[in-house]
């Protein structure tokens, strides 16, 4: 079980809750379970969500494991120059 925090706009499509407890071993499973629970989140995942694991931001490595007790924070996928 990992504790996941959603940024403000995303929490609006996740039952208005910022904090969620999810049983997920990696980013892929986290996204799948969030989408199962909150279908409105799927278009956001398609558009791109970044995942900060203990402060390190991952954008595409969906196989990245979510260590027990880690801080998991979902963020908008950003543009760069």
């Amino acid at each position: 079980m990992v504790a996941v925090t959603l940024w403000g706009s995303l929490s609006a499509v996740a039952g208005g809750k910022t904090k969620h407890e999810i049983e997920a071993k990696d980013i892929r499973e986290l996204f799948r379970k969030l989408a199962e629970q909150y279908p409105g989140i799927e278009p956001w995942i398609d558009r791109g969500i970044a995942v900060a694991i203990d402060g390190v931001i991952y954008r595409d490595t969906w196989s990245k494991e979510l260590p027990a007790g880690a801080e998991i924070f979902l963020l908008p996928r950003l543009a760069g120059g």
């Binding site: 925090t5 940024w7 900060a52 203990d54 402060g55 931001i57 801080e71 924070f73 963020l75």
Partner: peptide, 9 residues
């Protein structure tokens, strides 16, 4: 805790 959310390493 960064102002945008996560805790910094």
């Amino acid at each position: 805790r960064a102002s945008y959310g996560p805790v910094y390493g």
